[in-house]
């Protein structure tokens, strides 16, 4: 008896909570979410079909499952949605047109940064190979430091510098 009452109360709560949003009774396999993660949920703010709980995302997951059952490939299924929604729906931007730029920019950044680093390292290496002449201001600072009179405070405020190279 109490069980019945409980289930009735539960049904009421479930009705409030769930409404008609979860009306489907579907079993989905792992590939569905895998493909869903490549698709942007059309009605959500910024979620994938694999993540979202929106009604349309659920429906799209079911479509993916049906098409998988029909033997369609991942590319064909993605193509099905792309045909309807355009490139917008693909979370991985296709490598063409304007969207090619977003793929090329990071590569270009790595190349430019790597090239810049290479040039700098070569320059710094060259600087290190020169025998540094000690004269003028530097010499004066060393002398002052040796005399115990440290004008800039710059020498003593650092950990012991590494031993000078021969």
């Amino acid at each position: 008896m109490s069980r019945l009452v409980r289930s009735l109360r539960l049904a009421a709560v479930a009705g409030i909570l769930l409404g008609s949003a979860f009306a489907q009774d579907i079993v989905l396999d792992s590939r569905v979410f895998d493909i869903g993660n490549e698709l942007r949920c059309p009605t959500c703010v910024a979620e994938s079909v694999g993540e979202s709980n929106a009604a349309i995302a659920r429906e799209m997951r079911q479509i993916i499952q049906e098409q998988l059952d029909e033997g369609r490939t991942r590319a064909e299924i993605l193509g099905y949605f792309q045909e309807r929604y355009g490139d917008w729906i693909l979370l991985s931007p296709p490598r063409r047109g304007v969207l090619l730029i977003v793929w090329l920019l990071p590569v270009a950044a790595v190349l430019v940064a790597g090239g810049g680093l290479f040039v700098l390292v070569r320059r710094w290496r060259a600087a290190a190979d020169e025998v540094a002449p000690v004269a003028g201001e530097d010499l004066a600072r060393v002398r002052a430091a040796l005399a115990g009179d440290d004008p800039a405070g710059a020498i003593s405020a650092e950990p012991a510098p590494p031993a000078p190279r021969p």
Binding site: W88, I89, L91, S92
Partner: peptide, 12 residues
Amino acid sequence: RVTVGAPFFDVV
């Protein structure tokens, strides 16, 4: 309107 999503960031 274009989309740049998780797969892009993963791949790169």
